[in-house]
Structures are given as structure tokens and as C-alpha cells.
Design a protein around this nucleic acid. Sequence first.
DNA 1: AACGTAAATTGCGCTAGCGCAATGAAGAAG
DNA 2: CTTCTTCATTGCGCTAGCGCAATTTACGTT
Lengths: 233, 233
Amino acid sequence: MNISLNDLRKISVFQHATDADLDLILKNSIVRSVEEGEYFFLQGDEAKYLYVLVTGQVKLMQSNPNGQQVNLRTIYPWQMFGALGATRGEDAIYPAMAQTLECSTAIAIPSHFLRTMMETRSYLSFDLMNLMTTYIQELQTRYREIATNRVEQRIANALIRLAQQSGIRSGKDAGIELFFSRKDVSEMTGATVFSVSRLISEWERKSIIKAGRERIQILDPHALMQIAEGHKE
Amino acid sequence: MNISLNDLRKISVFQHATDADLDLILKNSIVRSVEEGEYFFLQGDEAKYLYVLVTGQVKLMQSNPNGQQVNLRTIYPWQMFGALGATRGEDAIYPAMAQTLECSTAIAIPSHFLRTMMETRSYLSFDLMNLMTTYIQELQTRYREIATNRVEQRIANALIRLAQQSGIRSGKDAGIELFFSRKDVSEMTGATVFSVSRLISEWERKSIIKAGRERIQILDPHALMQIAEGHKE
DNA sequence: AACGTAAATTGCGCTAGCGCAATGAAGAAG
DNA sequence: CTTCTTCATTGCGCTAGCGCAATTTACGTT
């Protein structure tokens, strides 16, 4: 795997970095590939590295003592993950697990190395804080949603959010394609697979979406947004 | 209101600051007092300041378009709030509102001033990142809870968390006193006031807690933890 | 002490959404 | 082509928790 400096510049946290800095980061990092369904790290592992995804897809999940899981977010190429341990001291642990949805490759940057770099490069701290801030705001919004909205609205919202992050415009029939299973969506919204399936079916009947196996195609985004806002029927 | 440097040192974000730095911060800040029930800032306001609470109590809430509210967290003296705007550019807005639970005083530090300071003082960035990280982890945990746990468990958890953050050991009867209304608890857990009230009553019958108006006294923390973990009866 | 206001309780009905089980459909593997 | 596995659907019953309304209780005020 050959990674250029221009590639690294795509990472929001490194957008203000100098070539020399990027080079230094690259030289101190290693590249890891992980098979589909396997993990970059597990919840509770020592947070020795933070990662930047190069290819593939990774989902961050947290599980409770009973093993029930919630999907915190999905990571796409050139996004950073596992960064929470970077700022903490040496004994930090990952608060979530990172599982690949397909065979994936990522750059693993030693946490202590990034910490050292941040001491003298304030732009790095700022960009990382910006990332954290964005993440906090998204989490707060999702928390509010799950606390105040009905399942229907939450699922609609999740689909809209996914469409923005990873939707593929499928030209001819003017739909946005998402590659997620019902289980994925249920874990993102805190609903059951059954409820998700029922609603997907209902929306398909109304031709708001077109559903397939591990595939959802949004035909009428506007109708979805209506549902997300709680307009009944 | 006279604030000493030693007071400022109580703030986790300033724990590594030099006296000169603290002095500079203090000189560039103003002190604001806000009556009970009033706001330091509203959701959507321009984030010109970040605050450090000196006296009183402030709750951070977010509301959705229909006006339903969720309580994100409660702030106690010497904690920082409204800091998300500090790292963002000039046009940042507060993603939540800060309402006082009692007459409160806070130091208002201009966001741009802190940003300038952080450029040359990496310890500040680190400490602020630490705060953000803690906050993200707590939010993730609460998100998981609300997605996977029943109301009963969530309320038990909320009480336990409140006891750790702000509980007052009331000597003779060996209980931990909390000063929150049923409504507060309901907004923290995403349940209704009614459900909270019903469960509080039930737990009082089982003498796990002792309830009063805007007051909850935990008598048997162990039983509460059992409930929080989902052990039925 | 009497009054007014806001918080809390409780009963009752209802429904959104869960949980299970049975069945069907779509890929993957051989 | 057949078989296996995984994902998805759908019907049915059930219950946790919401929502409303009617009281009751606690506290601050005058």
C-alpha cells in the first residue's frame, strides 16, 4: 500500500499540516489491513494507536454488559477513528470497538507520537478539537432524537444521515443507494430489526424507497424528511 | 465577586496553567451573574464566550423543533461550559442552552482569547481535549443506555450518576441527598415525569430511596445498582 | 393562618413498538 | 443445480411506558 502526502491531506485533522509534518507522521506509522467482520480494536483494549482509514468501511460500536450493541458511527476512507485515546495519558483504553464491514486498510499512528507532535503544532490540536466538537454535536443531536422522537422518525433520520455521508446516486432511476442491512439500521436507531423491516416495507409500498437485501434505495428524500420531522401521513 | 488564582486552578482545564496565564485569563474575562431560571445563553446564540461556573448550578439542555427538551448535563462550580464554540471559528453557535437552576455566577472568557492562548500553550489544548473526551465517552454511554435499557434502569443509572457528581451525604440517616425534581430526572433519562414519579414511589415503598419535593434521598445505593444492571426484583 | 402556585401522585386507557416464531427470499458454497 | 446460511418479512400477542385528567401535597407569600 503506497500512501502519498496528498492522500494524507484529505484527512480533516491534517488539513493544515506541512509536507514535513505529514512525512514525519507517515514514517512513524504502520499500515494495517483487517478482513471483513474482524476488528481493528475491541472495547477496552489499550489505546496505543489511532487510525486513519484508507480503504474499506469500519463501524464503531459499543456494547453493554449483556452484549447488546449500539452503532455509534460508520467510518469512511480518510476519516480518523480511535482518536479519543490519543489525548489521554498512556493508560487510555478504547471506549468502543471498531469492526470492519468489508476488508479494510488503515494507517495506525502511535498515540504517544501524535501527542508529541501536538505539543509543538497547535494547528493539529485545533483540527482534532474541531473533529471532537463535530462528534459531540452529532452525538447530542442523536441523543435528543432517541429521547424525544418515535422509531419511525429516528429511522427516517438515520437514512437521511446515511445518504449524506455515504449515499451513491444511482443515475438512471434517480435514487440514492445505501448499503446497509436492516440490522445495521436497527443498531443505529435503537429499534428492533422487526420494526425497521416493517417500516421499510411500508415505505416501499408508498414508493418512498426501494428495498433489497442489505440495500436501501431512497426514491423520495422529501417524503423521508417529512416523516423525520414527525408529520404524520 | 473576587476570584483568586487558586480558585481558577480548581478548573480541570487550567490545572497546568502558570500563575501568569491564569492572571491573563482573568484580566481578559468578565463576570456574569444570572437569576434563577434565566439563561447564560440560548441554543443557536453566537458562541462568543465560554464560561466557568463560580457559584450556583446550570443545566445544559437541547430542544428539538417541537420544543421538547433533553437535559444534556448539569454544571457545578468550577466546571467549564459553552466550550464547544471556543475551538470553532468566529461564526460558531452554541448547540445547547444553559439555564440556571439557582442564581448563578460565572466567568465569561472570550472564545477568541482562549483560542489565541491555546496557540502557544499546548497544555491548554490537551486539558480541553481531555474534557471533550470525557464528555464524548459519557455521551456515548448514555446513548447506549437509552437505546438498550428500560426506563427503570435508565432512571436508576441517572440517580447513581447524580449521586457521584453532586450527592450530599446526609450524616445521621446515611443517605445521599439529591436536589432534583422529577421533571429534571425525566429530562435526563428521556422518560415522562409520570413514569419517574411512579418508579420513585415504588422504590420508596421498598425503602430504596426517600423522596421529597425536588429532593431524592438514596438509602440503598446497592439496590439501585441492581436495578440499573437490569436484575428484575 | 390563609391563599396561590408549582410539584408530585395515581388511576385509567391506550398504543407504539417489542419479542417470538414461522416462513420466505437471496446469495454463497459445493 | 442443490444445499446452506444469512437476511428479511409478517402475523400475532403482549406489555412497558406514554398521555391525560383529577387530586393531593409542599412550599412560598402576604
